[in-house]
């Protein structure tokens, strides 16, 4: 492994992905020459309208889709290299939007054990991993329950535990909160932050700007291209560009802008609600 591979868990180099649209073989370009590196241990949010290529990008990151052109290297393995398919999937796990589509067993702990079992791991080790994965999503006491008896948020936590039990270095969350109620959403978000705190590289695809504002880095996709890439501060500063991409900005940014237009002088650095409250309270 060379030094860039050491630093970056995922290296996407000039990636193109074309979908085949109909029987006659016409294609539609979903990813259009994207190059991105994801640093180990980082927390990246990917935002963009529906159809912008966010989910396709995510699927290219764990070899669910293979590049039409360019390369995707995950933890040193080329996703096109079939011999290392499982190394890729074990390095970068994926959590999808709909928890119902990800649960395979009728008992919670069996579901979580499914991934490690397929890796051929020793049963005693599986037992340990399942217990610790369920603890990490605070679902330990539900391990003997049937998944269909759980709420959407609880099911999503089981799906996350199933990925955590694979001990991935990176987890890609593809709109994991889109189908959940506010409480479920908060729980999942807290768990994502906790997993990141434990050293897992997190990639969060989301429509919620408040969720994206909590990441270290935001990548904005539009028509298959990565059009913006920077810290939340940098990205949300470009309010008019975001509006042109039909994206919202967080309430704090919107209000800060409106207040400054009325003659106040609030810092352009304000992105979160706490920062706005602080700035308004100190305003003299």
């Amino acid at each position: 492994m060379n030094t860039t591979e050491n630093k970056n868990i995922i290296q996407i180099n000039d990636l193109v992905y074309d979908y085949i649209q109909d029987e006659s073989g016409t294609t539609k370009r979903a990813i259009d020459h994207v190059s991105i590196n994801i640093e180990r241990g980082s927390f990246t949010a990917v935002i963009g309208q529906n159809g912008s290529g966010k989910s396709t990008l995510a699927k290219c990151m764990n070899a669910l889709l293979l590049p039409t052109e360019g390369t995707v290297i995950v933890n040193g393995y080329d996703t096109k290299d079939e011999d290392h398919l499982w190394d890729v999937r074990q390095s970068a796990g994926m959590v999808f939007q709909n928890p119902d589509n990800q649960i395979v067993s009728s008992i919670v702990e069996d579901d979580v054990a499914f991934g490690p079992e397929n890796l051929g791991i020793d049963p005693q080790e599986i037992r340990k991993r399942v217990d610790s994965a369920l603890e990490s999503v605070q679902m330990g006491k539900y391990k003997k329950k049937a998944p269909h008896m759980l709420s959407g948020g609880q099911k999503q936590r089981i799906a996350i535990a199933g990925v955590v039990a694979m001990k991935p270095q990176c987890i890609i969350f593809d709109e994991p909160t889109a189908m959940l109620d506010p409480k479920g959403r908060k729980d999942i978000l807290r768990i994502i932050h906790e997993l990141h705190g434990e050293g897992i590289t997190a990639i969060l695809i989301t429509h919620f700007m408040e969720e994206a504002a909590q990441a270290d880095r935001i990548i904005i996709m539009n028509r298959g291209k990565a059009v913006m890439d920077g810290s939340p501060r940098e990205v949300f500063r470009s309010r008019s560009e975001l509006a042109a991409l039909s994206l919202d900005v967080p309430l704090a940014v919107e209000l800060r802008h409106a207040l400054n237009a009325k003659g106040l002088d609030l810092s352009e650095e304000i992105v979160t609600e706490e920062e706005l409250v602080e700035a308004v309270c100190r305003y003299r």
């Binding site: 609600e273 706490e274 409250v277 308004v280």
Partner: peptide, 26 residues
């Protein structure tokens, strides 16, 4: 947001919902 401001001692109403009202109040 208005509740947070109020808990920090600012005299703003907490029964408003739109950005415009918030802007006026602040």
């Amino acid at each position: 947001l208005m509740r947070d401001l109020r808990s920090r001692g600012l005299n703003v109403p907490t029964d408003i919902f739109t950005e415009y009202e918030a802007e006026q109040a602040i």
